[in-house]
Amino acid sequence: MSTGAVLYAGAIGLFLIGCYAMVAERHLIRNILGLVLVESGVNLLLVAVGFRENAAAPILKAGQSAGMMVDPLPQALVLTAIVIGFGVLALALALVVRVHQAYGTLDTREVARLMRVEREASGPGAAGPRAGAKS
């Protein structure tokens, strides 16, 4: 197997495993871990796209000119994508904390059921949720 096949297979594999965790698992934390795997897979794919055989890392050493280097652009993109993924992950975890506090469970179906119950309980004339209503 060539390097390329391994890299591509790895990227797609990570992506698919992550998708499975997001779709089939019923635990919110596992879903979020699935998201992390999906993002890793995509990032790997992005880096693999910029790979060239027998090329150097894109850093100029003293006295070295721009010769055969791998494509630096995907690497920059991946750096950005990783940070974005981190930000989303942090927010997701913060929300998970609050969901757990509110419903006492992290089972997705249970949370969905409880949410539906809560929504249907709010009758007519009930004050709509407003920013700052809880404080």
């Binding site: 790979f51 060239r52 055989e53 850093i59 721009a66 280097m69 652009l73 920059a76």
Partner: peptide, 27 residues
């Protein structure tokens, strides 16, 4: 095809980056 990235922009950046920005680290 793997390993044969078109590098339309990448190649141009590698060539132009030292002159344009002065940074060693092209990333």
């Amino acid at each position: 095809p793997f390993g044969l990235a078109p590098m339309q922009v990448g190649q141009a950046i590698v060539a132009a980056a030292p002159g344009d920005t002065g940074a060693d680290n092209i990333v």
